Amino acid sequence: MTTRTVAVVTAGLGQPSSTRLLADRLAAAAARELGPSTSIRVIELRDHAHDIVNAMLTGFPSPALREVIGAVTGADALVAVTPIFNATFSGLFKSFFDVLEPGSLDAKPTVIAATGGSARHSLALEHAMRPMFAYLRAAVTPTAVFAASEDWAGGADAGSDLDARIGRVARELAAALDGRTATAAPDPYDDPVPFEQMLAAGRPA
């Protein structure tokens, strides 16, 4: 069985960070959908910040950064997660993708995700991140995932809506890798209880 690799790039600045937490949950969902032969590589950009800046200034990545770039460009799929600062992706996140060689993400199945203080920042996924990855010619999944502070209000495992979005994007990623159509989660409103039946249930016996 061929091992498929997923590179997870996370640009959180703190340790721990909600950005890394979202990245880990996306990685776990992708691994479940893709099966046991999946290899996940998580890359914390904060660990390579100085090398990224040096590569932008000199045009030459260090050996450590070159290995990270190779892991991203050589992976079968990419999950890219950034915090939202001033209505867009972080400078560290953008700088990393700026040092990639042109064409290195061509047609790569890619999930985009972000974290922010409130849900109103979620549009950054569509007005900033998706256009950037379109320019890089990555094959971005239809669903993007945003996690606001309220999604973590009940702890790391909270947020059924967030879970649903993560599950949906994981299915889309698996479908992109397998060349099949993603199957949607069952809609609880597809088979409603008839109104007459609800009225009958409310009548006294």
Rank of each mutant, 00 (worst) to 15 (best):
A71N: 01
V72K: 13
T73P: 05
T73Y: 02
G74L: 15
A75M: 05
D76A: 09
D76T: 07
D76E: 05
L78S: 08
L78Q: 14
V79C: 03
A80N: 04
V81M: 02
T82R: 03
T82N: 00
P83C: 03
I84L: 11
I84C: 07
N86C: 05
N86G: 03
S90T: 12
G91Y: 11
G91Q: 07
G91L: 06
L92M: 02
F93R: 09
F97A: 13
D98L: 06
D98Q: 11
V99Q: 14
E101G: 13
E101K: 15
E101V: 09
E101I: 15
P102F: 09
G103H: 09
G103C: 10
L105W: 10
L105M: 02
D106V: 06
A107F: 09
A107N: 09
K108R: 14
A113Q: 01
A113H: 00
A114Y: 00
A114N: 10
G117N: 11
S118H: 04
A119Q: 10
A119K: 12
R120T: 07
R120F: 10
R120P: 00
R120Q: 03
H121R: 04
L123R: 13
A124E: 07
L125F: 06
L125W: 15
L125A: 05
E126M: 11
E126G: 04
E126A: 11
M129D: 03
R130H: 06
R130D: 03
P131K: 14
P131Q: 06
M132D: 03
M132T: 05
F133A: 02
F133S: 01
L136P: 09
A138P: 00
A138R: 12
A138V: 05
V140D: 03
V140G: 01
V140T: 15
T141K: 04
T141V: 04
P142E: 05
A144G: 08
F146M: 13
F146A: 08
A147R: 00
A148P: 12
S149P: 02
E150L: 13
D151K: 09
D151I: 02
D151C: 06
D151N: 10
W152M: 13
W152G: 08
A153L: 11
A153R: 02
G155S: 05
A156Q: 14
A156G: 15
A156K: 03
A158G: 13
G159Q: 11
S160G: 12
S160I: 04
D161H: 11
L162R: 04
L162W: 08
A164W: 05
R165C: 10
G167A: 14
G167D: 10
A170K: 01
A170G: 07
E172S: 00
A174N: 06
A175R: 15
A176L: 11
L177W: 01
L177T: 07
D178W: 01
G179M: 00
G179T: 05
T183A: 10
T183Q: 07
A185C: 05
Y189G: 08
Y189T: 14
Y189D: 13
D191T: 14
V193P: 04
V193H: 07
V193W: 01
V193Q: 14
P194D: 13
E196D: 12
E196Y: 15
E196S: 05
Q197N: 08
A201S: 11
